[in-house]
Design a protein around this nucleic acid. Structure first.
Length: 568
RNA sequence: GGGCGCAUGGCCAAGCCUGGAUAUGGCAGCAGCCUCCUAAGCUGAAGAUCGAGGGUUCGAAUCCCUCUGCGCCCGCCA
């Protein structure tokens, strides 16, 4: 158990005993986080009606009968009006520092919690990733990293929609328009996809050609399959490159067409028919989900016999259900309804359901983005602009360094800034993309956290240069008495709790918030507490603390998918 | 017409699930700090009827209801 939870459990025990001593019993101890204490309890409010006394009197009465165990982690309890404020003792601080030193990069890591298949990004291969897609990628990738640290065996998957209507259009477009071989392939695909949509819109008779392609792919025409694959590859090559640039990783790629070819789709349809929920309407096959609260039926087969995205997605989820303990899908807000229907069908089939993480849309100041209409800002363009702007910032701050250093720093600062800006916002908030804001390397974004890490590294490098062996240092917690030192250790102690809650709530932005607070705490320590100029015994303990802060900052940054620099 | 989500200083966010102490940060603007481990840092002052109205409660940014505004969605697209 983590240090903080041990502390909390001890507080819980002493408080319960104090309640018993006064003949009181209550299940909710009303713990809360507070700036006034390490753990606070407002239980006195709750007891007021029972005791017929003021909350303030009850708090004092309870505080008076609290007995602290000698070898525990609690330093003292204080009352502040109706509140009971508990504080951690030096043992707590000492064990936190020791745990970080011993565990190093494994601090806050658990193991053996089962297999998770986490699907994210899964953008259609009809063009490059745009700035809306990266919200999916960054939330998904960060979540995967958090779950790994929380002890899950995570496999991230990108589901490639390689047989949808838009791929038929791309494939058709490749035969009718010139493909710009000078451009990055995903961008060139978008160009002809936009053109094709315009033509299909102006000349509706050509739509029949798309319908024919759809028929042929459904029936396994090898020539059409080859053409589709070529189109998808061109798009995916570019997409993969963009993801790599952002340090977003997928362990595997699942191809939609697989589930048609291996007959999983027809098996799925049969299984749904067996539930007795399938009805035929105008020649199309639909599922009745009214008992799940869905008014309209879900179409799973067109009247021409071809399957739909939903059907293939169901087959895909059935496959996933058989290969993991938990499925997690990161999806855009437009998938809310369909993912609910998907869960309902899986439930009706008696199968595991995915946990859905929904994020709201990113729009442009002039309106929503659309690949089809060519209204989007590509992620590549954003990354290029960010990189250029980051270089300007490095030039300004480190003019004395060489070009390689500057470009290197600009790169990790830029990527970090993008990832942090996206992940720090809670997913249910819709956002508007703004160039001025995107290129503003505001304080307390990723560079702020990276900088804190670099500062910690710098202190350690200087120490080692002067002949100090970091690994051999001993620490004495009793000499670390400054507020900034104690605050910093308390923040370090919270890390495992933050990972656990981010993992269980599937909320990566909690980690982003923590990262900023930790960096903040370290920067205050850095400003007020001299390390290398301190007297030897004190200096050694402070160096150990710097090492711990560096370790945790590095873990946090890594879990956010952001590079932790030694120098910047 | 129905469903889901969002609304917090001039701007952008956290907090809301699980009600509790002067609502937490950043940006912009104001006033300061490098003879001291990297100033991408630190400090201070200023700035908020937490969309509106009602309700529950000893107590509401947080829970419930109504309304307004914005985004997304509502059977053979994905």
């Amino acid at each position: 158990m983590t240090m903080f939870l041990q502390f909390k459990s001890q507080v819980s025990q002493v408080l319960t005993s104090a309640l018993e001593a006064n003949g009181l019993e209550i299940t909710d101890l009303s713990f809360e986080e507070s700036i006034h204490a390490d753990i606070a309890s407002s239980v006195a409010f709750r007891l007021a009606p029972v005791c017929r006394k003021s909350p303030k009197d009850i708090a004092e009465m309870l505080a008076g009968s609290i007995e602290l165990p000698k070898d525990g982690l609690i330093d003292r309890v204080e009352t502040a009006g109706p509140y009971l404020n508990f504080f951690a003792n030096p043992t707590f601080l000492d064990r936190t520092v020791s745990a970080i030193r011993t565990q190093g990069p494994d601090y806050g890591a658990q193991t053996g919690r089962g297999k998770v298949i986490l699907e994210h990004t899964s953008a259609n291969p009809n063009g490059p990733l745009h700035v809306g897609h990266i919200r999916n990628s960054i939330i998904g990738d960060t979540l995967a990293r958090i779950l790994k640290r929380a002890g899950y065996d995570v496999e991230t998957q990108y589901y490639i929609n390689d047989m949808g209507r838009q791929i038929a259009i791309v494939s058709w477009a490749l035969e009718h328009f010139d493909f710009d071989t000078e451009k990055k392939t995903d961008h060139a695909i978008a160009d002809i996809y936009i053109k094709a949509n315009k033509v299909l819109n102006d000349e509706p008779d050509k739509v029949a050609e798309i319908d024919e392609l759809m028929q042929r792919i459904e029936h396994g025409d090898p020539d059409v399959a080859e053409r589709f694959k070529h189109a998808v590859d061109l798009s995916m090559d570019g997409v993969k490159h963009t993801l790599e640039r952002m340090n977003v990783h997928h362990d595997s790629f699942a191809w939609e067409s697989t589930y048609v070819r291996n007959s999983d789709v027809s098996t799925t349809i049969d299984r749904i028919k067996d539930t007795g929920r399938a009805v035929v309407d105008d020649g199309a096959l639909m599922v009745d989900l009214t008992d799940y609260g869905f008014e309209k039926k879900l179409v799973i087969q067109r009247s021409d016999g071809t399957s739909l995205y939903t059907t293939r997605d169901l087959a895909y989820h059935l496959w996933k259900a058989g290969h993991c303990d938990r499925m997690i899908d990161v999806l855009g807000a437009d998938h809310k309804l369909i993912s609910g229907q998907l869960k309902a069908v899986l439930n009706a089939l008696g199968e595991k359901e995915p946990e859905i993480v929904i994020f709201e849309f990113v729009s442009l100041p002039e309106g929503s983005m659309s690949t089809r209409r060519g209204k989007f800002i590509s992620t590549d363009e954003l990354l290029d602009q960010i990189d250029a702007q980051a270089l300007v910032e490095v030039e300004k701050r480190r003019p004395d360094t060489d070009d390689e250093f500057k470009h290197n720093v600009a790169n990790f600062v830029g990527i970090g800034a993008v990832r942090y800006d996206v992940v720090k916002v809670s997913p249910e908030k819709s956002t508007v993309f703004d160039w001025r804001e995107a290129l503003d390397f505001e304080k307390q974004g990723a560079p702020f956290i990276q900088y804190s890490h670099a500062r910690a590294c710098s202190i350690m490098a200087n120490a080692e240069e002067s002949g100090i062996d970091m690994a051999a240092l001993e620490h004495d917690i009793s000499v670390l008495v400054e507020d900034q030192e104690i605050e910093l250790i308390k923040y370090l102690a919270r890390f495992p709790v933050v990972i656990e809650s981010a993992a269980s709530d599937l909320k990566p932005h909690h980690l982003a918030t923590y990262a900023r607070e930790l960096a903040d705490s370290f920067n205050q320590f850095y400003r007020y507490v001299p390390v290398l100029n301190a007297e030897a015994p004190l200096r050694d303990s402070r160096l150990v603390l710097v090492d711990c802060a560096r370790t945790v900052l590095a873990i946090v940054l890594d879990t956010l998918g952001i590079y932790a620099p030694k120098n910047m």
